[in-house]
Amino acid sequence: MPSNEIILKVEDVYKKFPVKKRTLHAVSGISFELFRGETLGLVGESGCGKSTLARMIAGSLPVTSGTITLNGVDYTKMKPKEFRKFRRNIQMVFQDPLSSFSPRMKIGKYICEPRINYDRVSKEEAMKEACVLLEKVGLPADFADRFPHELSGGQLQRVAIARAMAIDPRLLICDEATGALDVSIQNQIAKLLVGFIEEKNMGCLFIGHDLALVRSVTQRIAIMYLGRIVELINSEDLEKECAHPYTQALLGSVFDVYCDRSRPIALLTGEPPSPLELHEGCPFAVRCGNCTERCTREVPALEETAPGHSVACFNPVSR
C-alpha cells in the first residue's frame, strides 16, 4: 500500500536536445510526486518523452532544467563522484532482456556486481546472496553458472529484477520491462514486480504502452503526450473518470479480447506533431475533437480536478 511519504519529487523538468541548429523538446515541464510503496505508470506513444524522462530520473541523462529529488536530496546537480555512490538508490529494468546483459558475463557475476561495487562485499559472499536471490525470483540457483543467451527472455527479466533487488534501491524504474515478452510470461513478471515492491516498500515507475497491463500493476497512471503529462489519474478510475481527449483516444484504441466486433474503431486522425517544431498552444490541439480557439494559443496546465486526478485540458470530456 502506498504511504503518504513522498519518495521521489520531479519538479518542472525540461530536456532539450540540440539537433542541427534546431531544438528537440523531449520533455517540457514535467512535475509529479511518487509515494513510498507506490507504483506510478507512465504511458504514452513512442517519442512522447517517457524514456527520456526515465533516463533523467535514473541519472543517466542530465536534465536541461528542473530538479529531481529522492528522499529530499536533489541529485541532478551532484558531482559525478558523489552521484556514483548515490546511484544505488535507483535501479532500472530495461525492455530488451538480452541487450542489457554483457554477452560474456555469467548470470551469477551479473547479479553480484552491484553488491561488490557499492558495498565491497567479497565475491564468495556476493555469490551466496546471488543464489538466494535467484531462488527468490523463481529460478534454480545453478543458473548462476550460465551465460545470458542460454536463458529465455522471461528468465532474463527475472535475473535483472534479482540484480536490482540485491542492493535494496529506494526507487525501481521499469522501462517497458515486460514489453518484449509473451502474455503469459508478462503476467508472471508483473506479479513478481508487484510482490517485490510491496515487500520492500519502495517506489516504482512503470513505463509501458499497454494500458491494460500498466493499469493492472499501478496505483496511478500518468499519460504523456509530446513531452508533457496530460493526465494523472488513479488506475482504478481510468476507464470511468478519464477526462483528457487523448487518454480517451488511447482507451478507444485498445482492442479487448471480448470486444464487440461490430463496434466501429474510433480513429485518432493525423500523426503527432514533430517535437522539433512545437506549435503554440496545447500539443494535442491539431488532433483533438474538442479543440477551441483558446487551445491553439495557450498551453493548459496540469490541474487537479478531483482528489488524485489532474488534467491538462481546457475542455475536458465531461461525464
Binding site: 543517466s60 556514483r84 554483457s102 556486481e113 561495487n117
Partner: peptide
C-alpha cells in the same frame, strides 16, 4: 549498449567498465 548503462547503475567505475565490460567484448 544498454548493458553499459546497466553496469554504471550497478556502480561500476570507468576502469571496470573498460576492462570488464568493453574489452572482453
Amino acid at each position: 549498449n544498454v548493458y553499459i548503462e546497466q553496469a554504471r547503475m550497478g556502480g561500476a567505475s570507468d576502469w571496470k567498465i573498460l576492462f570488464v565490460y568493453i574489452i572482453p567484448n
